[in-house]
């Protein structure tokens, strides 16, 4: 029992960063943009939040956790939205190839994260390891009372606010896409921009808005990892390939944000299942870490084989749109 509870906790802990990324990427892909820059954007979001709170804590004698957290969230949103903006300008306005831009952005973003993560203490005058304990404490604060309950407490209430935010955002994203006019318009843009355009929808504006806000949401995944998961520190490449897993999760969830919620926990579980399988040596453990990717590949093949209309990627995914093209 104890073991199962810990496993679920850890799976959720692994899954939340991926869920943020997937929710952001779903919004982006629903507008027809396949943003392969999400992994880089998540790095940018993570390090920016960390840097923001780091300088805040450095400059104050008694930093308040709440202010630190606010600064971290704002810095993250701004930096990752900036990443989304770069992608949008290049692919929407300048009509560059989406995959190429996305990959360049990932190179840039990962470098950005690792560079500042590795050099920030030096740039700040050599204060040693960066650590923002105070701010991180705000991110790691559990729900008082509820988290003390047996079983239910640890499984449902033992997380920081970003965890709940990620789920709320996914639900909101689902409602936005399926229950609002703007969501309907956005989906139309991703399916067939020419049709959306003819219906009077400002295709570029929707693409910009979806891509930039998608990037901002994804960036929170980086922040979650740095603050709640790592407790306010940075290790280079520590975030690993979670950004790519987020893109994989979009496929697993078949572009449905609600499915992404449980999908993220499944992914998180698959990611760490090796710890809970007895008798594995270190080498075999590495092979188990393949599971999320293999599951994604299987889902990808099955959906392409079934070829059901509603379960396909947005029809215009990956291509740019220009009205006066003939």
């Amino acid at each position: 029992m104890e073991l199962i509870i810990t496993f679920i906790q850890k799976a959720i802990g692994q899954g939340i960063a991926i869920l943020f990324g997937a929710t952001g990427e779903i919004a982006t892909e629903k507008s027809g943009n396949l943003n392969l820059g999400i992994p880089g954007i998540m790095y940018m979001g993570g390090i920016s939040g960390l840097m923001g709170s780091f300088f805040y804590e450095l400059g104050h004698q008694n930093p308040s956790p709440g202010v630190g957290a606010l600064i971290a969230v704002v810095c993250t949103l701004v930096a990752s939205a900036l990443g989304g903006l770069i992608y949008s300008v290049l692919t929407i306005t300048l009509r560059a190839n989406q995959n190429v831009v996305g990959l360049a952005l990932t190179t840039f973003g990962t470098g950005f994260g690792n560079f500042f993560g590795g050099s920030i203490s030096k740039l700040a005058g050599g204060v040693g390891q960066i650590s923002v304990m105070t701010t991180a404490s705000a991110f790691q604060k559990k729900l008082p009372g509820l988290s003390e309950l047996p079983v239910i407490g640890p499984v449902f209430f033992s997380y920081g606010f970003l965890t709940y935010l990620s789920i709320v955002l996914s639900v909101l994203m689902f409602l936005f896409l399926n229950r609002t006019r703007m969501g309907l318009n956005l989906r139309a843009v991703g399916e067939d921009p020419a049709t959306a355009d003819a219906a009077g929808i400002n295709v570029s504006a929707y693409k910009y808005a979806a891509t930039i806000s998608g990037a901002a949401i994804a960036g929170l995944g980086g922040l979650y990892f740095v603050m709640e998961y790592l407790g306010g520190t940075w290790t280079n490449n520590g975030f690993g390939d979670r950004g790519w897993l987020a893109i994989a999760l979009v496929i697993l969830a078949l572009w449905n944000p609600l499915s992404a919620v449980w999908g993220s926990i499944v992914f998180g579980g698959l990611y760490i299942i090796y710890i809970y399988i007895p008798g594995l040596n270190r080498a075999a453990q590495e092979l188990y870490k393949m599971l999320p990717y293999l599951v994604t590949i299987i889902v990808l093949v099955i959906t392409s084989k079934r070829n059901k209309e509603e379960k396909q990627p947005p029809a215009s995914l990956g291509s740019s749109y220009f009205r006066e093209e003939r």
Binding site: T93, R95, F108, S119
Partner: peptide, 28 residues
């Protein structure tokens, strides 16, 4: 300057953004 080597990724990224973006002005 005692910084870390990931600086090169940032440089590469910036250069790529410009080279990718300029294709627009070649085509339009």
């Amino acid at each position: 300057f005692g910084l870390n080597e990931n600086a090169s990724d940032i440089i590469t990224g910036i250069i790529l953004f410009f080279l990718i973006g300029c294709e627009f002005f070649v085509n339009y």
